[in-house]
Amino acid sequence: MTKPLLDVEDLRVRFHLRTGTVEAVRGVSFQLGRERLGIVGESGSGKSQTGRAILGLTPPPGEVTAKRLAFDGIDLQKASKRTLRTLRGGRISMVMQDPKYSLNPVMTIGEQIIEAYQAHVKAGKAEARDRALAMLEAVKMRDPGRVFSLYPHEVSGGMGQRAMIAMMLVTDPDLLIADEPTSALDVTVSMEVLRILDELVSERGMGLIFISHDLKLVSSFCDRVLVMYAGRVVEELEAKNLREAKHPYTQGLMRCLPTLADDVRPLPTLNRDPAWAL
């Protein structure tokens, strides 16, 4: 097996609160190659904190520990602030849930993409501009030139999220972490965004971590799925083998969704076994 792109072993995220210490992520381990990995879980399962911890974006007063947290052989825990800065946004990028909050409202979309590019690549103005326009085209903007000079509030949610993806991919990262990238979007728009994301990821041979609460979506989009519950990975499986999930939590998650295909009534609900959280 080739050297993994990302190697995470025993990742823990703790929050020291006044009411006591809360462990949001409790010993997560996985390796990621140039593939699409899905992390699925319900709210409070620690899936988002896992993604943030990899990028070093754990909000204070959070504390991250891990036996190993290495990106392409670089130890992220020991790396200097400088190294981390060049990695972040350069070789590792992150797409957040809502473009409304992750784009700067007082800069045009084009300026933001140029800024993201120039922060990591030494490039002249004209070159950066060409790059940004090419990137907007790559995310299937109908009129890249026009979108380039628009402000974030002037575009729809789907376009905003595509602009966000353009901004995150302009530096040609090796790893993209997408945290619920389409939850704020309508279904038809989100399918379009996913299709674009899928194309770019496979074209450029990136690694992708796709974090979502939607088991159906993740399993249809990713190669491999980690199912998280109460801060732990309860099951890891190939997306195509989802039907053969062993863990009762994964099975329950799959069954409790109403489907168009068959009419189950009442819907099976999850009986949470306290042992799952141990």
């Binding site: 709210s43 609460h213 939607d214 409790c256 969704l257 109403p258 009442p266 819907l267 609900t269 999850l270």
Partner: peptide, 15 residues
Amino acid sequence: LDASVQAEILNLLDD
């Protein structure tokens, strides 16, 4: 709501 909670609420509404 989370998927599993959604199922509970849908059952409740049905009932």
